[in-house]
Every structure is written in structure tokens, then in C-alpha cells.
């Protein structure tokens, strides 16, 4: 770790004044401190924002909307009974990520700003345009990582679980910066690498996430929502693929639908046209398959034969199926898992 100045501003204004190129915001530290240890982040100043008042509240409004402070811990948000009832797939996504210890430290704002989990990004000696613009991309030697939305310069995958349902639910990010406050629709928060992989979000330097809002309309999916995450081990693993699916059903037909995918692209992925295919249809395997396939339509030609593309389609399909069945009364024992219950009973065909 490079030596750094440690600052602990007492107000948002102080924090914004302290920021300069080379400074880094510190929330829970679960991502930044790790990146500093492995030499990927080398800030000269670390600005600990956790003492700033007013950023740790969870407010549920009567109209169904919610406002969550940027410093709210992942575990506190997931365990907030009112929040989990209103936005079950957000709670489930939170609980499917990392470990109990990390969720107790990680903050909402930090989760939105997570660095990608490309192995070459994490090895400072290797070529990585995101870490070191212009140095190249060592991930190209394995044909790239992201199935969709990658560029020649970067194909790193966005690692967050939480961001997947937030994108699906049209969340809004509140940002403070030297030029005042502004709101960023979630769909425009993360950007594709294009020719500038080093710029992962649309936040300007020195801007800070202060809160996140879920609109009133998001709560109508509470009864039919699911977050599903396929992993290489049963828990404590990043998603190979994940999907957040939410439906509104009236009289046996889908009146509103949301579908977002994780683990496949440089940012959480959502295709409104895929959702549109569901509207007016009765829930069913065929229409879910069509919508899921459509969500992957934009896959890079090279990824067409990639097994993860097939897995992503099936993940989306199954998430839609689970959403149609209805949100369970209580969160499953293994949040987000393919394995919903430990039932031992086995039937012979």
C-alpha cells in the first residue's frame, strides 16, 4: 500500500472540499482496501466518509417508494423488515453476495461503485486498459470475459449482485459534487467500456453517491419477484450468471415485467424489449424462454457459442418462472441459490 493521508470529514461539504485527483472515498472498505493491498488502487488520500451524518437512513415512504442512504450497510438493508417486504429481490440479491462479515461492512454506495472482477485487472503487472489506460487488455488472450457490451479495450464483468435488481426496478442515484446535487437514473450510472474502459461510471471526479431511491412503482412487484444466482460453489462465490425477474400479474396475465441480468456484461444488463415481450401474456415457459433469449440478443458474435450465454438465458428463464410462482413468505435459507430447499425427499420416476 502506498502511504496516504487519512481524512475523516465531519460533513458532506468538508468531504467534497477535501477531494482531489488521487484521493479515494472510503466507505466500508471491503473493495477499496483490498484493491489497495493488491496494488491496484494507490490513492494519496483516503477520505473516510462514514462519519458524515445523514447518509445511513432507510426511509420507506407511504407511496411505496424508498430512499436509502449511501452508507447503509448491505446487511442492514437486507434485514430491514419493511424494505425486504417491499423489495424482496433486492434483499435476496444483497444476501446472496459475499459473506456475513463483508455484508456487515460493505455499504450501498460502495457496492454501486465496485471494481470489476477481471483477474488481469487485479494483477498490476498485466496489461489492463481499465487500470492503466493504453496498456492493452490481457483478457483478450482468452477471448474476453463479458458476453455482451465488451469493447476491444475491455471485457471485464461487473461483479455486483445488488445492482441487478436495482437496475430492474428503475432506481435513482442521488449524487453530490462540487457543483451541487444531481440525480442519476440507475440505467445511466454504469457505462460500457468503449474506448475509455478507465471510466466505469458517469459520475464526475469528486462526485459522491449520497443516496439511492426506489420509485413508488417498484413496490408493485413485491409479490412476484426473484433473484437467482448460479455459482461454482453453494455460497460465497461470484455469479457465473444471475437474473432479477419481477412480474405484475392481473387476471392471469402479465401487466408489467422487469428483467435484468448479472455476470455477463461490464455493467448490469437490462433489455426493455425483452420485458415488452412479456406484457399481456399469461406466464408460461414458452414466453419466458422467448424473453430470456431476447435479453441476450445483443451478445457479441464471439460469445454466441459460449456456454455462459446459454446459462444466462436459462438463468433468466428460471428467474421469471420463480417470479411467476410468487415471492416466498420468508427468504430462502440459501438466498439467491438454485437450491431453494434442503428437502431430502426423492421420488423415483
Amino acid at each position: 500500500m502506498k502511504p496516504f493521508d487519512f481524512k475523516q470529514p465531519a460533513t458532506l461539504e468538508q468531504a467534497l472540499t477535501l477531494w482531489h485527483p488521487g484521493a479515494a472515498w472510503l466507505g466500508g472498505g471491503t473493495n477499496l482496501v483490498d484493491l489497495m493491498k493488491i496494488g491496484v488502487a494507490r490513492p494519496d488520500t483516503v477520505i473516510d466518509i462514514t462519519r458524515i451524518p445523514g447518509l445511513s437512513e432507510i426511509d420507506l415512504a407511504d407511496d411505496g417508494s424508498a430512499r436509502i442512504g449511501a452508507l447503509v450497510k448491505n446487511s442492514d438493508l437486507a434485514d430491514h423488515p419493511g424494505f425486504a417486504a417491499r423489495f424482496p429481490m433486492v434483499a435476496e440479491a444483497l444476501l446472496s453476495g459475499a459473506s456475513g462479515q463483508l455484508r456487515n461492512a460493505a455499504t450501498l454506495g460502495g457496492n454501486l461503485m465496485q471494481a470489476p472482477r477481471c483477474p488481469w485487472f487485479q494483477l498490476p503487472e498485466s496489461a489492463c486498459n481499465r487500470r492503466n489506460p493504453g496498456s492493452g487488455c490481457d483478457a483478450r488472450q482468452v477471448g474476453g470475459l463479458a458476453l455482451i457490451g465488451a469493447s476491444e479495450g475491455c471485457s471485464a464483468i461487473h461483479p455486483s449482485d445488488l445492482c441487478v435488481p436495482l437496475l430492474a426496478l428503475d432506481a435513482v442515484v442521488e449524487v453530490a459534487g462540487p457543483d451541487g446535487h444531481r440525480e442519476v437514473p440507475f440505467a445511466t450510472l454504469h457505462r460500457l467500456p468503449g474506448e475509455h474502459p478507465e471510466t466505469a461510471t458517469t459520475l464526475a471526479p469528486g462526485e459522491l453517491i449520497v443516496a439511492l431511491r426506489l420509485p413508488a412503482g417498484a413496490a408493485r412487484f413485491a409479490g412476484h419477484a426473484a433473484y437467482l444466482k448460479v455459482r461454482e460453489r453453494t455460497s460465497f462465490a461470484f455469479a457465473l450468471t444471475s437474473a432479477a425477474a419481477a412480474l405484475e400479474l392481473r387476471d392471469g396475465r402479465i401487466t408489467a415485467a422487469r428483467l435484468a441480468l448479472g455476470g455477463i456484461a461490464p455493467k448490469p444488463w437490462r433489455v426493455p424489449e425483452a420485458e415488452a415481450l412479456l406484457i399481456g401474456q399469461p406466464p408460461g415457459a414458452e414466453v419466458f424462454a422467448r424473453a430470456a433469449a431476447h435479453a441476450l440478443e445483443g451478445a457479441d458474435p464471439a460469445a454466441r457459442k459460449n456456454w455462459r450465454r446459454l446459462l444466462a438465458i436459462r438463468t433468466a428463464q428460471k428467474a421469471l418462472h420463480m417470479a411467476a410462482l410468487g415471492t416466498p413468505e420468508t427468504l430462502p435459507a440459501l438466498p439467491g441459490s438454485v437450491f431453494r430447499s434442503p428437502a431430502q425427499e426423492v421420488s423415483h420416476a
Binding site: 483477474p119 488481469w120 490481457d138 488472450q141 460453489r233 453453494t234 455460497s235 460465497f236 461470484f238
Partner: peptide
């Protein structure tokens, strides 16, 4: 292994998976 440099790409416990508690039942 990274085919170009030969180094182990998943040389940590997040990438080199060993069983966790939830992998063990019955």
C-alpha cells in the same frame, strides 16, 4: 494458468474455490 505468462490467475481464496460450509450437508 495465464497461457501467456504462466502465472496462476486465481491465486486467492475467492478464485481458487475450496468447499465452504454451505457445500456440506448430510
Amino acid at each position: 494458468h495465464d497461457p501467456r505468462t504462466g502465472r496462476v490467475l486465481n491465486a486467492d481464496l475467492a478464485g481458487y474455490h475450496v468447499p465452504v460450509n454451505a457445500d456440506v450437508t448430510g
